[in-house]
């Protein structure tokens, strides 16, 4: 089998090697490969992110007509809904990575969780803040303790909890496992947030974007919103990939491949 250690040091590991050695080689080999390859992958996320978000913002601010009831304040939707979507998507992705990290002990899954948490927390914060700014003129209040707003606030605390847990445990493997566990446990909040507007009476309205049922939006209002959600998702991928590279470099700062690439590169 081939284990890629980089362009210059491709090595063939014999299948006759015993299992422990083979696994260690595989693990050692995957880090420099990921570090190099992810720099190339990033462009495929950055370009669509910039294009989609630019289209969504320009269309949302300029070309989309004002809402028949709310007027121009509804343009906050083009930030608020993609941020809220990303807050749920990000945590779900972290939970999936958590399962992979706990069951397969894949180091990159642990690193993904550590890198995604600050990005997810940022967009959860954005969803809450833009929602409050939007709520003041339309509802008549910045904040209420209804089921939707409260559960989204709990999501922010879960993200912050993962970040704090990661920082407070010195051993990277132990920190990775603890964060994986918290990601899996906390994912129960995701369906609660999504269905809160159905299960309970809330001040917040129902979902704008749904997998089932047509959305109640004019098509020329809807396309920029979908582009915004896609653009934010690509942005999340891009930011998380960069965060993973930095995390990887930090975790393996004493290893030979890091020395080779950075110190002599």
């Amino acid at each position: 089998m081939h284990v890629r250690l980089g362009h210059d040091e491709k090595t063939v590991v014999s299948l006759t090697m015993d299992k422990g050695v083979k696994q260690r080689f595989h693990r050692l080999g995957s880090s420099p490969y990921f570090y190099d390859a992810s720099a190339r992958w990033a462009i495929w996320l950055a370009v669509p992110a910039v294009i989609c978000i630019a289209y969504a913002v320009i269309a949302g601010l300029v070309y989309v007509p004002p809402d028949y009831q709310q007027g121009d304040v509804f343009r906050i939707l083009y930030i608020h809904v993609p941020s809220a979507w990303l807050s749920l998507f990000g945590y779900t992705a972290m939970a999936v990575a958590g399962v992979v990290a706990l069951v397969w002990r894949l180091k990159l899954a642990e690193i993904f969780i550590a890198a995604a948490a600050p990005v997810g927390a940022s967009f959860t914060f954005l969803a809450l803040v833009t929602g409050a700014i939007w709520g003041e003129p339309t509802w008549g209040t910045y904040w209420v303790w209804d089921a939707r707003l409260t559960s989204e606030l709990i999501l922010l605390f879960l993200y912050l909890g993962v970040i704090a847990l990661h920082r407070s445990i010195a051993s990277p493997r132990a920190a990775g496992r603890a964060c994986a566990l918290l990601s899996i446990v906390g994912v129960i909040n995701v369906p609660i947030i999504h269905y809160s507007v159905v299960w309970w009476t809330t001040l917040h309205q129902g979902a704008t974007l749904g997998l089932t049922g047509g959305s109640n939006m004019d098509a020329d209002m809807l396309w920029p919103l979908l582009a915004g959600a896609l653009g934010f998702t690509c942005l999340f991928g891009w930011l998380t990939l960069w965060g993973m590279r930095v995390q990887l470099l930090w975790r393996e700062r004493r290893s030979r491949w890091v020395m080779k690439r950075i110190a002599h590169g």
């Binding site: 004002p66 007027g71 121009d72 941020s83 940022s122 954005l126 700014i133 939007w134």
Partner: peptide, 23 residues
């Protein structure tokens, strides 16, 4: 922004700041 300038522009401004920091 139809009289909602402070709301719309502050929301977009905060979003731009948060994304810039993340990059």
């Amino acid at each position: 922004m139809g009289g909602y300038a402070s709301y719309v522009w502050s929301a977009y401004g905060i979003a731009a700041a948060v994304i810039t920091l993340n990059v």
